[in-house]
Amino acid sequence: MITAERKPLDEIIDYIKPFSRILLVGCNECVTVCAAGGRKEVGLLSSALQMAFMKEGKVLDVKELTLERQCDPEYVEELVPLIDQVDAVVSMACGCGVQEVAKRFKEKPVFPAVNTKFMGASERQGVWAERCQGCGDCVLGMTGGICPVARCSKRLLNGPCGGSSNGKCEINPEVDCAWQLIWDRLKSLGIEKTYEEIVPAKDWRTSRDGGPRKIIREDLA
């Protein structure tokens, strides 16, 4: 899933200071799962913003709506009946959702209330970690199902650097060395010999380096 974290309250207040009526839009997908921008967080942020305005002797009218999927134009349409009643929109979705709302309502300012972080998985309650960088040419088949592009700090494709120590990355003892994990996994699969095949220089065109990406499925389009 795409993970996100709510922005500091002061930053959000800074965005909406000039306005008195806002639409606070959550999303029921990834940001709900990572507890950053679902219905519950919309409610909490709404109260926090109204209280902050009250302290300043101002009134903030907040309309709340959490869409099924904010990155889908079909669901964004549900905002149409509310949009004329507000001065600005604050989105609690990932960057994709924010942009869909901004695209649909050209005359309304739209502000993000979360920082979109990464594609990751839940490690345990309340902890998410990066797993994929969307490089567009998956290497997991040769790395034992552990991604060096996303999980090695130097995205090395041919093994660990000289800074791998006790299974941890040199940048931070909290970070696992991806190549230690890969090596352990290759061994448990009995295919550690495959490590010695050189992975050639990656073609980064399939990643962000090739410019903004798009998928066109002729069979569906």
Binding site: N158, G159, P160, G162, S164, W179, Q180, W183, Y195, I198
Partner: peptide, 23 residues
């Protein structure tokens, strides 16, 4: 090229050198 015989995992350090030779 460089080699660090003291980094982990130790048992991978010879295969890693072999890769640098092959490269």
């Amino acid at each position: 090229a460089a080699a660090n015989p003291f980094a982990d995992p130790f048992e991978l350090r010879v295969p890693r050198l072999a890769k640098k030779v092959k490269a």
